[in-house]
């Protein structure tokens, strides 16, 4: 389809507005952080008023929320879930464990830096972050989407070699479908 630049800009603004105000979240409850999701979603903090809502499967989701430490074994599942999601898709890394390994920085079985394996759009610091911090992280993500800067999915496609190399470094037995969309 041919788009002249000015009109595409307006379409982008509208689309980005829709994207930022409706986030379907796939919560990948790996670490301790999963326990902060229920209070974020229910009546005390009510994330639904920002259009944030749980999705049941990766296909329907926009945001992959990685709540805490990731064992190499679950990294495989995370990659698989992430690749099933539809573009544009975003990742929120939740807690110190996803940033630098947190208290598991020297463990033989948990990865240290999540952004070397999959592209992270927003990190939420803390061990563990409270629901306010989670909502602040979502607000930041919404700002990034509105500005068109949350382009993790694009980076993933462009640097697939780099990410695949890092992933295969720790997942020796690679039995996964190709990333083809």
């Amino acid at each position: 389809m041919v788009n002249d630049k000015e009109s595409q800009k307006i379409v982008d603004i509208i689309q980005n507005f829709a994207r930022q105000s409706s986030l379907f979240v796939l919560a990948y409850g790996t670490g301790c952080g999963a326990i902060e999701i229920p209070p974020t979603m229910t009546s005390r903090y009510d994330a639904e008023r920002f259009g944030i809502r749980g999705a049941a499967t990766p296909r329907q989701a926009d945001v992959l929320l990685i709540t805490g430490y990731l064992a190499t074994k679950s990294l495989k599942r995370v990659i698989r879930a992430y690749e099933q999601m539809q573009n544009p898709k975003y990742i929120i890394g939740f807690g110190s464990c996803t940033i630098n390994g947190g208290m598991y920085w020297d463990s033989y079985n948990t990865i240290n830096r999540l952004d070397m394996y999959i592209p992270v759009d927003v990190y939420i610091n803390g061990c563990m972050p409270r629901p306010e911090a989670v909502i602040a992280g979502f607000a930041k993500l919404q700002k990034l989407i509105q500005a068109g800067k949350a382009d993790g999915w694009d980076r993933y496609q462009k640097n697939l070699e780099f990410y695949r190399g890092n992933q295969k470094k720790i997942i020796h037995n690679w039995v996964m479908p190709d990333y083809n969309w």
């Binding site: 390994g101 033989y108 990865i111 830096r113 890092n166 720790i170």
Partner: peptide, 8 residues
Amino acid sequence: AKKTFFDR
């Protein structure tokens, strides 16, 4: 961990 994972 040092040789397998990436330090920040």
